[in-house]
Amino acid sequence: MIDIFADVEPMVFKSGINVPYSWWAGETAERFFLALRDDKKIMGTGCSICEKVFVPPRKVCPLCFQENMAWVEVSSEGVLESFTIVERQLASLPRKAPVIFGLIRLDGADTSILHYIEDADHTDIKIGMRVAAKFSDERSGSMHDIDCFRPVR
C-alpha cells in the first residue's frame, strides 16, 4: 500500500450550505410576547382540569391534553429553582462569561423559565432565593425583553 499522506495533507471539504430558518411564534406565544413588549407583563395559561399554570404558555395542556386554557398574569418575581455559573467562554454563549443560567419559577406559575441571573454575588447565590425580572428598555417581543433576573434584596 502506498502511503498517500506521506507528502500531502489529507483533503478536507468545507460546507458552503446556508440553511436560513424563520419560526412562526404562533398565536399563543405571540400573545405572550406582545404583553411582555407593550405592558411588561408576564402571562401564562392555566389548565381548567389540572389547574397548573404554564409559562411559557401552552395552547393545549400537555398533561391533560385539552384546550380549555385560560390566560393568567403571573408575577415578575419568583424563586430560583436551579442555576449554574458558566465560567468558560464558548462561541455559542451570547453573553460574556461568567454567565449565570437560572431556572426561575415565577409566583403564580407551576413551571420555570430559563434566563440569566445578574447583579448577584456568586458566593451568595443559592437555590430557593427570590429573584425579580429586570425588563429591557428597548423591547421588540422576545425573551430578551427581559434583560435578566436579579436577587430581591
Binding site: 471539504f13 460546507s15 450550505i17 446556508n18 440553511v19 436560513p20 430558518y21 424563520s22 419560526w23 412562526w24
Partner: peptide, 21 residues
C-alpha cells in the same frame, strides 16, 4: 412546516458532500 425553512438548502444536505453536493 415548510414555510420555516429554505427547502432547497435543507434538501441539498442529503447529497454526498465530497462528490454530488
Amino acid at each position: 412546516k415548510n414555510s420555516e425553512s429554505d427547502t432547497t438548502g435543507a434538501i441539498t444536505t442529503a447529497f454526498d458532500p465530497v462528490w454530488d453536493r
